[in-house]
Design a binder for these strands. Sequence first.
DNA 1: AGGCACTCGTGCACACGTTCACAAAGCCCA
DNA 2: TGGGCTTTGTGAACGTGTGCACGAGTGCCT
Lengths: 218, 218
Amino acid sequence: MARLPVYLRILSEQAELEVECISSDRLAELCGANAAKVRKDLSYLGSYGTRGVGYEVAYLVYQIRRELGLTHDWPVVIVGAGHLGQALAGYGGFGERGFPVAGVVDIDPAKVGSVLGGVRVRHIDELAQIVQARRVNIGVIATPTSAAQEAAERLVAVGVTSILNFAPVVLSVPRSIEVRKVDLAVELQILSYHEQRKATTGGLRSVGGAAGQRSASA
Amino acid sequence: MARLPVYLRILSEQAELEVECISSDRLAELCGANAAKVRKDLSYLGSYGTRGVGYEVAYLVYQIRRELGLTHDWPVVIVGAGHLGQALAGYGGFGERGFPVAGVVDIDPAKVGSVLGGVRVRHIDELAQIVQARRVNIGVIATPTSAAQEAAERLVAVGVTSILNFAPVVLSVPRSIEVRKVDLAVELQILSYHEQRKATTGGLRSVGGAAGQRSASA
DNA sequence: AGGCACTCGTGCACACGTTCACAAAGCCCA
DNA sequence: TGGGCTTTGTGAACGTGTGCACGAGTGCCT
Ligand SMILES: NC(=O)c1ccc[n+]([C@@H]2O[C@H](COP(=O)([O-])OP(=O)(O)OC[C@H]3O[C@@H](n4cnc5c(N)ncnc54)[C@H](O)[C@@H]3O)[C@@H](O)[C@H]2O)c1
Ligand SMILES: NC(=O)c1ccc[n+]([C@@H]2O[C@H](COP(=O)([O-])OP(=O)(O)OC[C@H]3O[C@@H](n4cnc5c(N)ncnc54)[C@H](O)[C@@H]3O)[C@@H](O)[C@H]2O)c1
């Protein structure tokens, strides 16, 4: 399930707040969802909470991490050291969450050699070496749109089996490769769609509580 | 529908390639989907293709743009001029697609005054002014996680009604505000989930064609 | 003009995800 | 020990989204 990471984050926060036990109700409130949904999701893990009490936070965190394969680090390699690649490389949040940046590569000699967030940018020809040395399974594409397909092919060729793609194109890769796309323009267009509907329909503004934060992915 | 933006992008590309007419089959192939689904989505626009021929690309582009509210520009304001905010501001793709950056604001005096992608960073106290002057409806949050809720409240206070949030927190805002979240760590965790499943199940590698690129959002 | 090949539009069945509602199960306290 | 309160786990209804299959309309070729 795609909601597991969200639960994990919230539970980790709660753990840091020294909360030892949490009910499905509270958890649902924290992630803006239905309590029954939360319980069903968690029961899918074969996990167990205690009736009348709730779930033990630490144990749940452990179970979800195990299910998500977060028992060990997954180094990632970033292809494209432009604006976005630099932001990603310089972002500490990934390493903290178990996704250290094993390397950043670029095709532009001018970019090669500069240091980003503690990682030196290397030439794309060294991709195979990086992937093999660090046993990288996950690649991130942050190249211009026109180079994304080529980048994907290079990643697949050196053995990467999962790709996170920021370029707004549908990549053509073998079925066995898992691809996820993050397309910011699409997100903005969905927002503009809602803005437009608000504008055309006589705008009635309800002031409700907090709930329901659509995230991207299917 | 959240697929409309994808169709729009592909149709725009086709238009540039001087393709005048396209069948639902071809369109489905280009975006890795089912032909029937494409037809159903398009019929939702009340749109019309011609039987035996296909859809007129230019007309379809116009219709989708109208449905998405892309008949005019939607200026956006970016809150937080850090790594991510800089990458976003410096990215020309948004302006091209109808989302010009009306302004970038930050709370850090050291950041204020610097120029990002042709836009000068201004102090967050000028937020109201920017939003009102340019009639901004869409705000982008690129602040640290701890400041995201505050940023959201400021945006709502000055009249922004749609928010694109990059911070990994569930924002608490009035119901009338449309929030979309982009959480890269979640994307990576979903990839690691699949990697882990590949590793535990005896890895059988089918080599299929291209189809199905899950994107984020619900 | 007629036939044929093609493609849209859509009714229908199915599968999935969501939500409700309730019984079983545990805790606490008298 | 037993009753009441709380919360889980899950069966069943519901709604939505997906995919198939086929009728209907269109263009082209003979
Ligand atoms: N910057 C953003 O905020 C942003 C937002 C949304 C989407 N995107 C998308 O992300 C991608 C990257 O954006 P950006 O702003 O970082 O672009 P950029 O032009 O700043 O950087 C692209 C980098 O990729 C490198 N590159 C080009 N071809 C390459 C190849 N074949 N192999 C390896 N590296 C190669 C270039 O040398 C450059 O350093 C684009 O597809 C863009 O559409 C970016
Ligand atoms: N950089 C990335 O690649 C990346 C990736 C995934 C998620 N994110 C998320 O995006 C957000 C920003 O990341 P970043 O790397 O750009 O962080 P950053 O620290 O580089 O930048 C944050 C900026 O926000 C400003 N800021 C702080 N408080 C503010 C406030 N109250 N109002 C306005 N501005 C304020 C800071 O001065 C700073 O300039 C974070 O929540 C992070 O988790 C970033």
